[in-house]
Computed example of a mutant assay.
Amino acid sequence: MKLPVTLHRPRLGPAEFNVIRPARTPDRALLLDADRYLNAYFDQEAAQLTAGLWALAASSPRSLIHLPMRVNGAAGAPGPRQRPLDLVLLHHSLQFAPSRWKELRARLGAGRAHTVDLPGPDPDAEIDGTALHHRENRDVFRQHVHSETLFMTGSARTFRNGAALFADLARHGPHQLLAHPGTHYCRRLFSDIGREVHIEYAAPSAQTWHQARTQAGT
């Protein structure tokens, strides 16, 4: 799987960081802070790209993987209880404090175009969401929201699991809506301390995305 990205090397004091963004942010990718839950919507293209980013996070423990999505929610003007968020994935060994993100983000610059070659996530991989609830399981996500960004901090295993989840959404979401009109296809992500992330496939129709972006006010 070839993934076009932009590489950034911002500095904070003496420290230099690696930040990786997709070369093009998909139009139909939306993450909303909905008070008790985090709601996310992706069409097939966006879900496939996001699967690649989660796979990249699994193989890049020294990098922050940044998917800027807030611009996609701006047109819907969601209320204060459902505000658009960006997403950052980072390996727990990096020990990056989310409180430093706003300053680091301001220093990203234009970056450098690059293409990474990743093994595609296995769409048939079994996704064991219940295992992440086990107290003895160390492969769990840490979740923080800071500076309009959701930070998901985890291990390589958790990111591979997330990659498989988004690949599953891209593979089965379109078929579900086509075969069963009026239904929806979704998956869920959990963290040890934090809120459930509800991830729903949304077909690329103007009506669907208008509803997703404005549901906070309805």
Rank of each mutant, 00 (worst) to 15 (best):
V140P: 03
E103G: 07
T130G: 01
V140T: 15
P123K: 01
R187T: 02
Y185Q: 03
F190W: 01
N161A: 14
L32T: 03
S99R: 08
Q95Y: 10
L31D: 00
H66R: 05
P26H: 06
R171F: 06
R11P: 04
E45R: 07
G173T: 06
Y185I: 08
Q95A: 15
A203G: 06
V145D: 13
S191H: 04
W101V: 12
E200S: 09
T218S: 09
I199S: 04
A125P: 12
A15D: 15
A15V: 11
L108M: 06
H144S: 07
H133D: 13
A55Y: 05
T218V: 09
F17C: 09
R160H: 08
V116T: 10
E136Q: 00
E126R: 03
L94E: 12
P98N: 14
A164N: 14
A113D: 15
P22F: 07
R9N: 00
A57N: 03
I193T: 07
A40L: 02
A203T: 11
R142H: 15
E45I: 10
T115F: 02
A202L: 14
A57I: 11
L31W: 01
P121K: 00
R138V: 01
S191T: 10
L94T: 09
L67P: 05
A206F: 01
K102A: 15
H133G: 13
L12E: 03
R135M: 14
T153F: 01
A170I: 12
A170E: 12
W54E: 05
S60F: 12
H114S: 10
A57H: 09
E196Q: 00
Y37C: 00
L169N: 04
L178A: 13
L177V: 10
P119K: 05
T214I: 09
A58M: 03
H180R: 02
P4Y: 02
F42A: 13
L118N: 10
H180K: 04
L150K: 03
V116M: 04
P14C: 07
N39R: 01
G129D: 01
W209L: 14
R100A: 12
L53A: 08
P119E: 15
F166T: 06
F42C: 07
K2P: 05
L169A: 00
G194H: 04
A131D: 11
A29F: 13
L38E: 00
F141D: 05
G173P: 01
E196A: 06
L189M: 06
A113P: 11
R138Q: 08
H66Y: 15
S155N: 03
A179T: 05
A216R: 00
Y41K: 00
A77T: 10
S205Q: 10
A23S: 08
D117V: 14
L32M: 14
L89E: 07
M1T: 02
N18E: 14
Y41S: 12
P98C: 15
R107H: 01
A51Y: 09
P204I: 08
